[in-house]
Amino acid sequence: MVKNEISSNVNKWEREMPPSHYIDSFSKLATMLSKGGRQYFKSKTFDASGYKWNFLIYPDGDEKTDSKGHISVSVCIEDTATLPKIWAKYAELKFFIYDQARKKYSIFQVGGSSNLHDFHSLKTEWGITKLVSRAAFDDPANGYLVNDKCVFGVEVFLLDSQFSEESLSMCVEGYKTFTWTVSDCSNLGDEVHYSYEFPVSSFKWRIQLSGGEHLSLCLELVDEKISCGKHQEGEACGFITPKLNWGWTKFARLTDFQDLSKGSVDSNCIEIEARIMNIYTINS
């Protein structure tokens, strides 16, 4: 068996599933091309990732590259006249040869940082110049060419250039403190109590308090202009979350909180302080 020495920047592996975008079988491929005076075979146009492509096979290498004695393969994007004057498409390419002896497809792909190919108006064709040597390809023991028949394939996946972007900016820096005095703490009950609204930066806030078995305590963003606020709480937790309030559903047991010996309640009143250290906004 003639061993195929692939280029150092090309990765090779196998799978049983055929390529999803294009596959073609050949009989006496080299003979057909030599008699026709052509250097390469060009497939019919096929669709992949929303664009039209052609698959090219050079049975004895591409004359434009130093690949004589090897099979070269490439894909070419078509219908570029419909694209903008300045355009670029980044594609991940996989090339296939069917191993008829092992009933598997050998997959070849350029690896490393160059596995994405930049198609643009000055470079509409990309591929692998030395996919497999002709000696290894012609050796029946490798399974690529059996009874003068072979099968090639290709997969094309585009990297979508549309992306989501967010920008983070600080609205206010420094301490902003709000104090709320709550009276008649022994009769909080299960209902929710709110402080009056107070401004910090260009936003309105309030404190939310409720009783029950545990005391629940939250800071709430109440600005009507914001449907899904994002705020950052510094000392308490250090997080960014798409919620309009944040706090504790079980801040303290109510019986412990109302225990005068613990010093939290004075004259049946409690004083709650909310300190907003920094506010950041995220614009999508």
Rank of each mutant, 00 (worst) to 15 (best):
V2F: 04
E5A: 09
S7K: 06
N9L: 06
E14S: 14
R15V: 09
P19T: 09
Y22G: 05
M32H: 05
M32F: 12
S34M: 13
G36I: 09
Y40K: 03
T45I: 15
T45L: 13
Y51N: 12
G61H: 03
T65P: 01
T65Q: 00
V73P: 09
C76P: 03
P84M: 05
W87Q: 01
E92A: 08
E92Q: 13
Y98L: 10
D99A: 01
D99R: 00
D99N: 14
R102L: 13
K103R: 10
G111E: 08
G112H: 10
S114G: 09
N115F: 14
N115T: 07
N115A: 07
D118V: 12
F119C: 04
G127E: 12
S133E: 03
Y144C: 00
Y144P: 09
D148H: 08
C150I: 00
V151C: 03
V151Y: 02
V156I: 13
E173Y: 05
E191R: 05
H193Y: 07
S201P: 03
F203W: 01
W205F: 10
W205A: 11
S210G: 05
G211C: 10
G212T: 12
H214N: 11
V222E: 05
D223E: 14
K225N: 15
I226L: 14
S227H: 09
K230D: 10
G234N: 12
L244N: 08
W246I: 09
K250C: 13
L260D: 08
L260W: 00
S261W: 02
V265Q: 07
I272V: 14
M277T: 13
S284Y: 09
